[in-house]
Amino acid sequence: MGLIAIGAALAIGLATIGPGIGQGIAAAKGLEGMARQPEAAGMLRTNMILSFAFMESLSIYGLLVAFLLFAKI
């Protein structure tokens, strides 16, 4: 039971590391592009949100696994 709790914590904890770093890089580059070319800001914003969604879905999978494990305790 204790192991399940640790597993659930690890599932969400580890699943947020990668997307966190990835979203940071994507946001930095996206803002850089918007600052350099403000006329392309609309298109960049749409694509940035879209790529955020893809990255965020990875940590959402981790969250779901954590919930699944949490229900077993």
């Binding site: 969604a53 965020e56 879905s57 959402i60 779901l64 919930f67």
Partner: peptide, 16 residues
């Protein structure tokens, strides 16, 4: 599958 899990996970996770 990813469309399903993304929306469900976000809304359900946020509520929890």
């Amino acid at each position: 599958v990813s469309l399903t899990l993304r929306l469900y996970g976000n809304v359900f996770g946020e509520e929890t």
